[in-house]
Design a binder for these strands. Structure first.
Lengths: 104, 104
DNA sequence: TTAGCATATGAATAGATGTTCATATATTCA
DNA sequence: TGAATATATGAACATCTATTCATATGCTAA
């Protein structure tokens, strides 16, 4: 499903703004760690907090933002709420960016 | 040159920070417009300023940041300095993110 | 050299943002 | 019901950041 450069150029202003929102979201170290942690498997808030070394409150705040952008989704299991990636493209995004970093 | 999800998971903390820097860079609407404009062809500061509707000074400030991250490069031609993308992955990054936006 | 254009840069400021803290909501189990 | 655990949320605060303005630098052509 990849697109050519020609199509990339034809992007509306609002689409660019939406893109910026997504990039800004994973442009924060804490949120990027969260998303990165969810690449492996779904995690509850408590587990995420330990993994990324943030307070549950801070994680919850950031998850709310990520959820608003449809980057993560959640499901309840008893008292816990498990979060997972809501977007198949995210892992591809990360891999592409990773190539840049590792080549640079 | 694509990598699988397994390798994406094995990312060091500093690599994640570098990734966050890149995403944060193109997470700003102004800078994203700049990068997007450079997808088509190299542009001088003056042209960029008109294209993205920012002052030459503001554009220059942002180009400095993008250049520090090796996302754009420049070449002088007389009085003008032409900027272009310094990273083949950027267009792929944009296309992947664009798919998310358009599917969502 | 001087004038003029293009770009860069430093300082200042206004606005955005991530975290913390206190509190609220929700679920489970005794 | 009540206690304990998990998550969410609002307000406040400190930090970060993008732009503006003034000024400096660099190049070209008289």
């Amino acid at each position: 499903m990849s697109v050519g450069a020609e199509q990339i150029i034809a992007v509306s202003g609002s689409e660019l703004d939406s893109l910026a929102d997504i990039f800004k979201a994973i442009g924060d170290p804490g949120r990027l760690k969260i998303v990165h942690s969810l690449l492996a498997r779904e995690l509850c808030v408590h587990e995420l907090a330990q993994t990324v070394e943030m307070t549950p409150s801070a994680v919850s705040h950031q998850l709310r933002l990520l959820r608003g952008l449809k980057l993560v989704k959640r499901r309840r299991d008893g008292q816990r709420i498990f979060y997972s990636l809501d977007d198949a493209h995210i892992s591809t995004l990360l891999s592409q960016a990773l190539e840049h970093v590792r080549e640079g």
